[in-house]
């Protein structure tokens, strides 16, 4: 009797695994397909019979850098996403702290409202504003628009986090004569490192992936990666192998981030899943 139930549980475990792996396969297959395609010759990529059996080539990656000048947009994307992340923190952290301590409801609502307003509603007026100010095609223009996603997200994650830090900590430090700045910089910030990681990782990813702002506000000098690979499409013939190589390289950093910092990525994505 006992033997049978262990057998049964092993069997159940195996079925469970198989179902899980099958579902997982569906979700990661496009990535496998993308990476395989990146290493294929033009003749192999147009032949679906040769999904796995082909002679790998590095040609696509080489031509990406030599013919399509991948390096420039790569640098632009790094500068823009890095700056947007840092600046979102500089703007968002002290504000979230202040909002959490003094319950500035109006500011909280406004910044959360920005999260639901569609990008296009900012893009049109900001494009016209930036044209007048000579900011179209500049790094600072694109960085500012990416902060429209980063700052509200910072506030969304940080306010509840700051609110959950025991009030006594702050009050006793103030009674001991510490300044507000010291309390913020030396107590609150060190205590919030995990939440700050969450915010940074997600803001970076969102900025890296952003398509619409960069497409309109960037120019040949400040073009970002999503715009670059999108522009591959407008070439007369579609070079699928080149496209897959580009797509793989653009996606690689975010995939590495989510493998190394999985905990923070999940926390950031599910922020707000549970109230409090």
């Amino acid at each position: 009797m006992k033997a049978r139930s262990t057998m049964e549980s092993i069997f159940r475990g195996a079925v469970y695994r198989i179902v899980l792996l099958a579902v997982l396969f569906i979700f990661i297959f496009p990535f496998i397909y993308m990476v395989l395609g990146a290493f294929k010759n033009t003749v192999d990529i147009v032949n679906p019979e040769k999904l796995f059996s082909f002679k790998p080539t590095m040609r696509n990656f080489i031509s990406l850098f030599e013919r399509y000048r991948f390096a420039g947009p790569l640098k632009n994307s790094l500068i823009i996403s890095g700056s947007a992340t840092l600046l979102s923190l500089i703007v968002g952290l002290p504000a979230s702290y202040s909002i959490a301590c003094y319950r500035i409801r109006s500011l909280q609502s406004i910044s959360l409202l920005v999260r639901v307003i569609p990008t296009i509603a900012f893009l049109v007026p900001v494009y016209l504003m930036f044209s007048k100010l000579g900011m179209v095609g500049t790094y600072r223009g694109i960085i500012l628009t990416h902060m429209l996603i980063g700052v509200p997200f910072t506030v969304w994650v940080m306010i509840p986090y700051f609110q959950n830090i025991p009030k006594e900590l702050r009050e006793s430090a103030l009674i001991d004569g510490a300044s507000q700045y010291k309390v913020f910089g030396e107590i609150m910030i060190p205590l919030s490192v995990p939440a700050i990681m969450t915010v940074s990782v997600l803001t970076f990813i969102n900025s890296w992936n952003n398509f619409m702002f960069g497409m309109i506000l960037g120019n040949a000098r400040t073009r970002v990666l999503p715009t670059l690979i999108f522009n591959f499409l407008s070439h007369a013939e579609i070079n699928y192998a080149g496209l897959m190589a580009g797509a793989s390289l653009v996606t690689l950093p975010v995939i590495i981030i989510s493998i190394c910092l999985q905990k923070y990525v999940v926390q950031g994505l599910t922020a707000g899943a549970v109230k409090g």
């Binding site: 990535f31 397909y33 679906p48 999503p226 653009v250 996606t251 989510s258 999985q262």
Partner: peptide
């Protein structure tokens, strides 16, 4: 497993789109 499920969410949408374009392709797509 969790990282695998995370990938469609974090991957650059334009890159994902181009991959699906090829996946869906009438002649070349799998």
């Amino acid at each position: 497993v969790k990282t695998g499920f995370l990938m469609p969410l974090v991957a650059t949408p334009v890159a994902v789109a181009l991959t699906w374009k090829l996946l869906y392709d009438n002649n070349f797509g799998i």
